[in-house]
Design a protein around this nucleic acid. Sequence first.
DNA 1: GCAAGGTC
Length: 812
Amino acid sequence: MTVVAFAEKNKAAEEIAKILGSGSYSQTRVDGAAVYKFKRDGEDWLITGLAGHIMGYDYPEEYNRWNEVDPGVLLDVDPQKFVTKENLANAIEKLSKNAHLIILACDYDREGENIGFEAKELAERVSTAPIKRARYSSFSKAEIEKAFDHPGEPDTNLAMAAETRQILDLKMGAAFTRYVTLSVREKAYTKEVLSIGPCQTPTCGFVYDREKAIREFKPKDFWKILADFDTNEDTPTEMIETDGADGKTKPKRTKKAESDTQFQGTHRSGQISEKEKADEIFKQIKGERKAVVDKKSVKEQSLAPPVPLNTTEFLKRASSFLNISPEKSLEIAEQLYLSGFTSYPRTETNMYAPDFEFMPILSDLIKNPSYSKTIEQLIRETGGKVVPKNGPKDAKDHPPIYPIRGATQSDVEKVVSLPGAYPVYDLICRHFIANLMPPAVFEKTKLDIKIKDELFDVTGSMKKSSGWLSIYDYETKKDKMLPQMEEGDVLFVKKIQNMSSKTAPPKKLMESELLTLMDKNGIGTKATAPTHIETNKKRGYFETSGKTISILDKGYMLMESLDTAVPIVIRPEIRSQIENLIQDVEDGKITMNDALLKGTTLIKTMYGDLTANKDRLVQKLAGSIKSEAAESDKKNYVGVCPVCGNALRLITTDNGRFVGCVGYPDCSQTYPVPKTGALTFLRSKKCPKGGVAVMDVGKKYNWAVGVGPCFNCDQKDVCDPPETVGTCPKCKDGQMVLVRLSDNRFLSCSKKCGHTQSIPKTGRLTVLDKKCDVCGWNLFKNKEADKEEIEFCANRRCRAIGLKNEQQKDNP
DNA sequence: GCAAGGTC
């Protein structure tokens, strides 16, 4: 008898061989796949690990020419299943040929069942042996033995549920992606693909929603009354009472008081939206010098350690604590796992099994000197009986992420060379230890302080015992200390402010928040969330800088148009509607065919809404793609079209040149430019008359696009204020102005009385704000190459500072 | 060239 089993991955296959073979097993290779051999109850066993799915869906060849197939047709065509990993498919067939019993042993979940069915389909081509299913959710000896000694039947519904998802996801993704991409290409030249999918699009939708809230945010005025108190009357402090009557008092939160007798309180009303009300309160207490502690309460507050890490929580923490992207973190965790440093990184479970053994791991982690003291103390205090603070979720998949063995930084870096490997390992270790430690305890003090009859709130916080925070210092908060006070104590008011401020817009979305949103709304799985984020980045829909996400123009335009045409596509509901159908298949409530029919109808309805809004969609997207190309073409980029918001660019044809909008032909905005002279855009210059850009023409004069030449503009002095130096010594009426020509420079009277005066011809010359003490002219600064910078008075009739007489003379 | 899901 030969038993052949298929696990979902190599590591699992080896683990199972180890347990069922009672530690004795050998390894061979079949078509490159590692096969583990052992004997059990006199029978020969062979187990191999697959590598996830070995098959995938795609459209038949004849539908792959995008330009020849109406994307809507894809909704009526059935995708076909193809083998995607030939070598594993071959290995499965070879192994199955001689098997008397085949056991599907992939992960105990929907995809695992489906992967098992892929192996089943291949095995059935060459074998008639019975095919069974081993179900286990951990690698404990008892569970594995039970699963393999009494295997059950494969679950068709479960496997078909995954099948349904694959087909519906592909249909929707392919039809929508092709339709949008091809429509945009009718108007804008681009090779890019504008992809849409039931996970990636809602992911982008979360970013869009936040961005929209920021863009549409209207700040509201509010007032806040702050008081600075001191327990000590003599502390020298500035006594300022700011009257917010002008409503313009800038928010000026007093820095943490220098002296430890000082602190700040906020009026009980908090943010006051009516100015009159704030003014009224302020009037009541303005000028008061004394306050009384009306009430004091002290409470202990304890902060429990974090629950064990599952994948989502791990990715969130790696992003916010270590600034490592979810995709990178998962890759690092995978490597740490394969190298035996940490456990399997893809898990939803955040509680330990009741028989989980902590002590061997803790003892091993002592190797790392950064943990040794904490662990020794923990063991001492608990007598070795540590208790985890478990989370609520047992998905029966894998244990939480925890360290398998202790290692120092160099131990880790020798094996895993990815940047961030040690910080990630360190986070996993610290999290593991922190979870077993006592809570952190804070003492929170709350004071009610009265100035006359007005109440002010003051809070203070002091860490009494660090607990788990001592090893988990990723986000330590500073203590907010208060001086010792009791009820009835008299305090001295050092300052009262009636502060005017504005409500702040929402903050940009953090990557960790996005992961939370995806998790909560069932977008993607623990293992795919990072991929969906990457897909959006790759498509140019949003970008991340550090931990924060910013939407890009293309993403915003795509979401905005989808939001008006088919709003459901950018919301999580698109996923949950399909998920509901899949769940019904899994529960045996409907057949896979019915689910596909219903799902396809749903997609068709959405597709109809999409095509009905083609014009709007295309206009926005084509414009944003052309603008993107124009902006990257720096030499010809002019600015933003005031008519349609797309980019304006310099267009040169055989007949001449002009500035035109990339939105053409939908937008036909154009501007003339001078016929001759090299054009250079002066990006830092802004035209006060609304010109869309200012450019230099042949180094001779400036030209504002949409306005005309700058030399006869009435705003000339605004853009190019004359550099005046001082009163003209001849007519005593005009100002001496610095005239800079391309080959000369001198001073000349602004009233054109004829007086001129020479100045040094070489060097970098600047008119300073400083004046000459003697004559009142502005001083000059000049820096010639290889010479000291000099400061001087240029007035020939003064020369009090800097220059020698012979260096300057009056011009005739 | 389209999706999402496994995993290396």
